[in-house]
Simulated scan of single mutants.
Amino acid sequence: MELEGKLAVVTGVSKGIGLATVEALLNKGSIVAGWGRTAPDLKHEHFHFFECDVRYNESVQRAFDQTISQLGTHVQVLVNNAGLGIAGLLEDMSLEDWHTMFETNVNGIFYCTRLIVPGMKELGEGHIINISSIAGTTGVEQMSGYCGTKHAVRGISHSLYKEVRDYGVKVTCIYPGSVQTNFFDNIESITVSDNMMRPEDIASTILHAIESHPNYHHVDIEVRPLMPKGRRQK
């Protein structure tokens, strides 16, 4: 897809992968609607922030309506990036934390995508990027809730792409390993380090998938840091 002048929606834009993706899209000439609870520290003539908590359908509907009314076009790119993880043994996990993860990571994708897909089908062009995780391909001790949500993202992505592919709409699911973001702020067992991938690395992968030939479809992309524990010494 040629990104110049295209309207893209990115969720979870305050920092990390979301913000890096917004900046990458703007550099390609896209018009970007950022949906999030907190506005990023970003000023650009083609960036428009709409307050949105993806846990709530009413909030997503309001952001969608504002985006369409103010920017006046169909959405051609959707990056479902908003998400969070809370660590803990399954039997110790509070109902609130469990529901927060599923409402954000799973329901949020449903609320956003269901509104944008009809316009993409009408245009005969569109690309949906869902950010899963390595945790969406395996199990991780003390991360059962988070893993459950990211496995759900994988299943949703695989089913959706088969529903929309014949309309010229792509769905790509990305599974990052460790990235230097605030995701680990509340996970005491992991410390952010320079050995992790950078948010802009994930953003570059997102752009690579979106800019591919119309008949070339990246379904799954797994990315990891090359040396997660640093370079081995001889």
Rank of each mutant, 00 (worst) to 15 (best):
V140Q: 10
G119Q: 13
T191W: 12
I187C: 05
G145D: 04
L123F: 12
I174Y: 07
D194A: 13
L115K: 03
D166W: 11
Q180S: 09
M143H: 00
I131D: 02
Y175L: 00
T138H: 13
I129M: 02
G168F: 07
T113N: 10
P118D: 02
P199E: 07
V140S: 09
P176A: 04
V171R: 01
S157N: 03
A152C: 01
M120F: 10
A135I: 00
K150F: 02
A135D: 02
T137L: 15
G124K: 03
I174T: 08
G139I: 12
Y111L: 13
I187N: 08
M143C: 09
M196N: 00
G177C: 11
S193V: 10
Y167L: 08
I131F: 00
S144Q: 11
I129V: 14
Y167A: 12
R154V: 03
H127L: 06
N130E: 09
G136V: 00
K170A: 08
M197R: 02
G136A: 07
K150I: 01
L160D: 06
C173G: 07
Y111I: 12
G124W: 05
V171W: 01
R198D: 12
E125V: 14
T138F: 12
Y175S: 02
I128L: 14
C173S: 12
S189D: 10
Y146N: 03
N130L: 07
F110S: 01
V192G: 06
Y111S: 11
A135N: 08
M120S: 08
Y146E: 04
V192L: 10
I109F: 11
S189Y: 07
N195C: 13
G148S: 09
M196V: 02
A152N: 02
